[in-house]
Amino acid sequence: MVLGLTLPGERRGRDEGKAAERAGATSGATPTAQAAKAGRPPAPGGSGAASASASASVPIAAAAAGAVAVKANELGQVPVLMYHRILKKPEMSLDRSTKELYDELTGLAKDGYSPVTAAEFVGGRFNVPAGRHPVVLTFDDSTPGHFGLDAQGNPKPDTAVAIIEQVARENPGFRPVATFYLNKELFGMDDAQAAAGLGWLRQHGFEIGNHTVTHPNLAGMSEKGVRKEIGDMEDRIVKLTGAHTTTFAFPFGSVPKKAKWAGKQDGRYTFQGMFLAGWRPSLSPFDGDFDRWKIDRVRSEGKIKENDCTKYCSTAWLEYLDKNPDERYTSDGDPNTVTFPKTAEDRIAKEYRARARTY
């Protein structure tokens, strides 16, 4: 796989109208498709226009004292980090070394980030301690450097899972979870190994997501082709785990002609969220402009010139959020409420207004 392109975009925070560019991955052929917005079903807690209208009239309660003390802002931006191969010595531009992964995760832990899975994020019910910040760790393509089990049934050393667990042991409060988007290779395992491995991941709180069978560019494919790529992968995952996936990541960040082809096929797959390639942090899932069918991610990379990573990959974005804490999601510590400064009240999604708290 080769790195690709930069596309014009707009920094998600926002009110200043700052220009940004997207730093992501591509097949080297086609830019990320901008599909027409798919029809959006009511988000969790909503039941159509009538309930949305009624909830808009509900007055917002005052925030708890503890939430105010930590300056909670649950309408802030959330970094959804995108990783590809993890190797001791990187070979291609998307690769990250084991040391780079360890250093980045340790930095996140020291800066008060707490990992949640992609499914928890889109569901809007993740539990992050007060004053800490959610981060979503996503790994694409199910390569051997992500995960494997040794003869004793433990994660193999120097894999992403082993590194995540090490960082969690060294930094209490850093939750050892991540989301792995699978292709047919399944970490280089045969089906018997994969069934045991995927079972281990799910039992230990890691999420399994769908990333198609062969990692094609869906933008130029027919409806039948799109559904076969996603459906066949889903069938295999269900066969190995007994469970459906909750989220999907577009290969190369490329959306098909109709995004709904990827979102649902009765009897085979129904996703609650779909993720793009990577260029900027995501909006909060409680923001009225949050689009669960095209969720932004940030490529994990240092401040290098390639793909304008000097500004728009993980190192740069994490530095930006650290310097602009009012733009970052900070938890109120209560998964049943959504706390934010009163100045942001117009941004809360209607379906979450009853859970809102302001100060």
Rank of each mutant, 00 (worst) to 15 (best):
A249F: 03
T241I: 04
M233N: 15
T247S: 13
R236W: 14
D232K: 03
V255H: 00
M233R: 07
I230M: 07
T246W: 11
T241S: 07
P256C: 03
E229N: 07
V238D: 11
V255I: 09
G242D: 01
G242R: 01
M233I: 07
D235M: 05
A243N: 12
V238F: 14
G253M: 02
I237L: 12
R227P: 00
R236T: 10
K258P: 11
E234V: 03
E234Q: 13
S254T: 09
F250E: 01
S254N: 15
A249D: 02
G231Y: 10
M233S: 13
S254A: 14
D232F: 07
S254W: 03
V255Y: 01
A249G: 12
G242M: 01
K258W: 11
V255S: 00
V255T: 08
K239S: 15
T241A: 06
F248A: 05
I230K: 04
T241P: 12
R236K: 13
M233T: 06
A249Q: 02
E229D: 10
V255C: 05
V238E: 13
H244W: 12
F248P: 05
D235Q: 11
V238M: 10
G231R: 05
L240I: 05
R236Y: 14
K239G: 13
E234R: 00
F250K: 00
D232R: 03
K257D: 15
F250P: 02
E234T: 03
V255R: 01
R227N: 03
K228I: 06
P256V: 02
H244K: 13
F248W: 06
T245L: 06
V255D: 02
K258Y: 14
K228Q: 15
L240N: 06
V238A: 10
G242C: 03
G231K: 03
I230S: 05
P251K: 03
K257Y: 13
P256L: 01
K239A: 15
G253Y: 00
T245R: 03
G242Q: 01
G231D: 12
V238G: 10
R236N: 13
L240F: 10
P251T: 04
A243H: 14
F250D: 00
T247V: 11
K228C: 11
T245C: 13
E229P: 08
V226I: 07
G253C: 13
F250N: 02
P251G: 05
K239F: 11
E229S: 08
G253K: 00
L240E: 05
E229L: 06
A243T: 09
H244F: 14
A249C: 14
A249H: 03
E229Y: 07
D235F: 08
I237M: 06
R227M: 03
V255W: 00
T247P: 14
E234Y: 02
T245A: 09
P251C: 08
K257P: 11
K239D: 15
E229T: 04
F250G: 01
T246C: 07
K257E: 15
K257Q: 15
T245W: 08
I237V: 07
T241F: 09
K257V: 08
V238W: 12
M233P: 09
T245D: 14
K228R: 13
H244R: 11
G242P: 02
D235T: 09
D235W: 06
H244V: 06
P256E: 01
K239V: 05
G242L: 01
K257N: 12
A243Y: 13
T241C: 06
G231P: 06
T247C: 10
K239Q: 15
G231C: 06
R236L: 13
T245M: 08
F248Y: 15
T246Y: 13
